[in-house]
Design a protein around this nucleic acid. Sequence first.
DNA 1: CGGTTGACATACGAGACGTATGTTATCTTC
DNA 2: GAAGATAACATACGTCTCGTATGTCAACCG
Lengths: 198, 198
Amino acid sequence: MVARRRLEAMEQNRSKLIAAGRKAFAAEGFAAASMDELTASVSLTRGALYHNFGDKAGLLAAVVAQVDGEMAARAREASAAAADGWERLLAEGAAYIAMALDPEVRRIVLLDGPAFLGDPSRWPSQNACLDATKRTVAGLIADGVMKRVDIEAAARLLCGAALNAALWVAASDDPQSVLPKAVHAFRLMAEGFLLGDR
Amino acid sequence: MVARRRLEAMEQNRSKLIAAGRKAFAAEGFAAASMDELTASVSLTRGALYHNFGDKAGLLAAVVAQVDGEMAARAREASAAAADGWERLLAEGAAYIAMALDPEVRRIVLLDGPAFLGDPSRWPSQNACLDATKRTVAGLIADGVMKRVDIEAAARLLCGAALNAALWVAASDDPQSVLPKAVHAFRLMAEGFLLGDR
DNA sequence: CGGTTGACATACGAGACGTATGTTATCTTC
DNA sequence: GAAGATAACATACGTCTCGTATGTCAACCG
């Protein structure tokens, strides 16, 4: 407690800053968040921030990576509970829609992330949604379940549909009542990729 | 030329500011654009800006409304050229994907717009993409072409898929080669909403 | 044990936004 | 037709923010 190792203390400060970033960015948005207030809220100064993350966008990238990692974990849970490969794709989609109900996810990953960090597929954290969907789609095409379509195109469309539906659900007046509508429509649309008729 | 009517001059200044906003926001992004430089580029000062648009976000809203209006016009053109109702939906989707190749549309309407103005469906300009798609979907359901699904949900998913695919196309290294892949995948996915099998 | 390095704090400067105040041309009203 | 009122800007100011440059202190190392 008294004499911590240097790296250990540094890692602790990084965690505190990232945690403060999640709160501030989610509450006020990236642009409006003040780095002075943010760092002071964890008893540090901007010196620590610029030393660890380079600039304000660097902290955003670190926050996005953390949230994105948690999203990937939840997606894997939903995926594991599914029976076959096709149900796995649908489960992942429903999971992403549900995840976007979290204000942190919505504001940080879906709005400010693309606006201030550029295209999600070029993030260091590699956007969990896209990555998982691409793998699932690739498997379904190989198994002859899905029509032969460009993997990245299908993944982009599916993720885009899911995340956009999620933004709608979150912005609606009664999220809980429109969520099933979104999930149902997503399922129908995804079935457009199914081979045969069933 | 010499003694213009008051309202006419004011409308001209508004137009100049909006035009400057389109350039600056597209080139530097909303957050990085300086209102001093922007107003000076059309021989005005920030006084004119704050008098006409209230604040910086007000100018963004005006710019978004203008670009959004142009998008709606182009969507109507694409729609009018289509044979039946279903082809009209696909044509609109393809048109939106193509439109997002324009850096102005991408940066202003798809990235900064949602981030700084909130959910597109609550914009004063009412988001052309969403609105047109909703009308088309409603017609197709009434005609028994599409499955009975929540209209807003279907429109949101279709627009989300199209716009997200567009962001992918735009961010790719060779946009012209991936665009057909995106359009093809969009068509397949939309067919999930079709009644019957063909 | 003294020098060095790294992690962080502090001080500073450059802009940027929004507002409050001033200025001028146009419109109204008697 | 002239004076007051109003609208459309310009100007000046204060406050905030980010990024950097400099300072400082504890931890490490030979």
